[in-house]
Design a protein around this nucleic acid. Structure first.
Lengths: 187, 187, 187, 187
DNA sequence: AATGAATGAGACTTCATTCAT
DNA sequence: TATGAATGAAGTCTCATTCAT
């Protein structure tokens, strides 16, 4: 039941925004009355926080696991490719509505999950740093800027995917190719 | 007065989120009482919509103007550079709070400004298409994906700029360089 | 079990007030869940009523017993002394939390126990009447007023005893002395 | 309006207890809707606190004023008499419902007004101390106990006055006489 | 005997909005 | 133009109570 409530809340936030995610609305989606939710959660905040944490933690775990699972000798491009694939498909995957949630939350609540998000960013930071160290990536990058810039681009994509109808693989490929080679014609 | 109200509302949304932007809060910021706002606007929605429109329209006008102002023979890289600079500095510029607003709005309201946003995206679409046509950009790009991906990355940056302390010029430069040449070491 | 529940409820009322005495709180104190209380009591009101009754009935029984136990020829001052002692010590005694309860209840519930309370007042009324009849107390008293006045003073004392650190014996002695002789210097 | 709301709330507390004093109920009594009360008060607590303060402060002011107004050479018995009269009549006076309020409040809220109450008790403490110093009152009193004992008796009286139909003057007279001379027959 | 789960009523509170002044 | 005052809808939350297990 706890999970069903979390799912319901996440779905509403994604579909109609944080404001529309009232206790009544959540309850209705799981065929309950608003008050009953309090048997399972102490407060609305607790629900939201749990959604947030589950979302980022799952994402972190998947990407970390993916990177760790690669052969020692994997090239930077392959590592990047794998990580991006997992990241993007997690954002879009059917049940992973959790990931969508973040961008709909009011600042006060967003701040709470900051630490976890920084930990996630660190994962990418390390990935890039590895590429630079091995000479596979240009060493003139300010990773402090590059990482959020890159993830920012990635995170916005699902919003537009619906319109363009692209698959998450296409998106991942585009992102990796663009990031590695740029769009400038080879000179 | 109308403008002062819009400014106040925008500032609150940016700083504290859409939820915190109550009529009372807005009124307080312009030294009025909530009811008085209704002399200037028909409803809260009208205020928000106007903020949104003003924001995108200003942004559109600036970027379009910048591109138009370039010499006929300007190279793609220069066009891109100029456009990115204007876009980023608008996002960060002191009074251009309007741009921040969008991401804080609930979906229902977001949808309303969709058309204008698509018009803005078209601007970039054309820019890239020009680059491809002239052979200055690789012609294997799916612009339908590339544009939102690129703008998405750009739009997220201000959020992180505060932490890293980078200037908007640095960010613009990073974005253009990365987009054009990629981060892969030259082969 | 019934008694343990009554004790728990009484304790909460005394310590934190009637409002804090929720079924959940009572249940927690006897290591149960709220619903289980309904196996033992028909309603929350039944619990409260029973506390009230038990309280006054115990008090009544003790004081009545004490008076009855005195030798036929006991003087008024001694009767009074004995009665006050029992009354005060009951108010303060460890397990006699019941007595504290009354003052925390909402009027609706208070009214219900009125009859029993009047019966208790009658006990004192009779005591005083006896003193007047025997000439040991001044015969110009309006007992209808004197009794509540006297008991009122007595009942408030525990509240202040905690602060002053006096024992119930001291209080009883003060009350009796003051009542009998007054505080005016002898003329 | 503010005052009418305070009056309404006080009246409900006195008549039906703190629990019955809901925002809806108060609003109904002043012909409003619950939400409207928040235009005048920040919260329910603010209402209650204000009632409490106004009550004790008024009481304090009146009694202090009365005592101060007595001629320098007034005798202890007269001072006491005057103070008791004011105290009792304040408790009972038509519009002074405020004073009734205190005894109906839950402990948490009671505690808040503790300081003011202690200040009031001090007034009586000083009065008695004066009597002892001048030799008009027996000097064997523990005022720390006597004051609350005496005021406790006094405060309970209104509750019973309704039943017995006594006037506040009668009550005051009884209290003073009893306190000064006791009820023991003169020996 | 006891509990997990749910309910419905109702509590306080906030907010966009209205309107007479 | 602006405000004081009010409203109605809705929000989060608490609580006594019920009932199948």
């Amino acid at each position: 039941m706890r999970d069903e409530i979390l799912d319901a809340a996440a779905e509403i936030i994604v579909r109609e925004g944080y404001d529309a995610c009232t206790m009544r609305a959540v309850a209705a989606l799981v065929d309950m009355k608003a008050g009953s939710l309090y048997y399972h959660f102490r407060s609305k905040d607790e629900i939201v926080e749990e959604i947030l944490n589950q979302g980022i933690e799952t994402l972190y775990a998947r990407v970390a696991e993916t990177i760790r699972g690669l052969p020692q000798e994997a090239r930077f491009a392959d590592r990047l490719s794998a990580a991006v694939s997992v990241h993007v498909s997690s954002l879009v995957g059917k049940d992973q509505t959790y990931m969508h949630v973040y961008e709909h939350l009011p600042p006060i609540i967003k701040r709470r999950s900051r630490k976890m998000r920084e930990k996630y960013a660190q994962l990418w930071h390390d990935l890039f740093a590895g590429g630079i160290a091995s000479g596979e990536a240009a060493n003139d990058q300010d990773l402090q800027l590059l990482v959020p810039y890159f993830l920012g681009g990635l995170n916005r994509v699902p919003e537009w995917m619906r319109a363009s109808g692209a698959s998450s693989e296409q998106v991942a490929k585009l992102a990796v190719a663009t990031l590695l080679d740029g769009i400038g014609a080879r000179r």
